[in-house]
Design a protein around this nucleic acid. Structure first.
Lengths: 127, 127
DNA sequence: AATATAATTCAATAGAGATTGAATTATCTC
DNA sequence: GAGATAATTCAATCTCTATTGAATTATATT
């Protein structure tokens, strides 16, 4: 079991987003409120499949569901704006270029006096 | 085949990032240059697996590889800063809250005169 | 109450890709 | 050149989960 602790939160986020169908649904919701059947029509997919992915998005708290006030058979889905912001911040923090620091790899020949000596020796020998 | 065209680029990006092992590798590289064996040690994973994921990251242009100048057996891996910025921008654009527009779902009972009428009628009938 | 509609749930299948182990390549040291 | 070391490549397996089809739930209409 590898040491993945530092990224366990993020991986859940990314796995959720990384499915083509689910991402396409999410993308349509980013254009505004939609109902299940409308999503299915636009993507050419059956309702139960849409439902399945919407459940995953709801369980994660990314999407809110609301029944039609006049006819409760219809359910409208919308992006949860708070969750969207958290998502943005989570990714932005992870990908922050400032995180990259100058660094000496711990393995490999040391780039120090010893190494310089070795190089010098090799060059002499090579001649 | 669903209409996923709008997200085909992004899905490649996300699939690449959404694997726990690969993300852990990426995360270590975000801390600075590392060689294969060092990554394997820290994650407790075999070199060939590390290699496999590094290849995927290199193929995508996210990671650069450079051989040690003194001993070419060692290869050092580092995040490609340009690619990192593109990645950030791609995700940031997709998740931009500004994209969400007010919208009437096209299905469901119309929230218009007809609907109001229906509601009014139902209420009368219900009584 | 009976029928129709929107959506969800459930069980089974199928497919993608991560992991594993072995073989191979490239480079260095002696 | 022979042996050692870092890394990669290859083929086979295993696992996870998206998809599919059928059954079920919830609500509305007549």
């Amino acid at each position: 079991m590898p040491k993945l602790a530092p990224v366990t939160d993020l991986i859940e986020t990314l796995k959720l987003l990384a499915d083509p169908t689910r991402l396409a649904i999410f993308n349509l919701l980013m254009q505004g409120v939609q109902c299940n059947c409308e999503l299915g029509d636009q993507l050419g997919l059956p309702m139960n499949l849409i439902s399945h992915h919407l459940k995953a998005l709801r369980d994660a708290g990314w999407v809110n569901a609301e029944r039609d006030a006049n006819d409760a058979r219809w359910v409208y889905y919308a992006i949860n704006p708070r969750a969207l912001n958290q998502l943005r911040e989570q990714l932005s923090a992870f990908l922050d270029p400032q995180r990259i620091k100058p660094r000496q790899p711990k393995c490999g020949p040391r780039v120090d006096a010893a190494a310089s000596t070795r190089v010098a020796q090799r060059e002499r020998v090579g001649k």
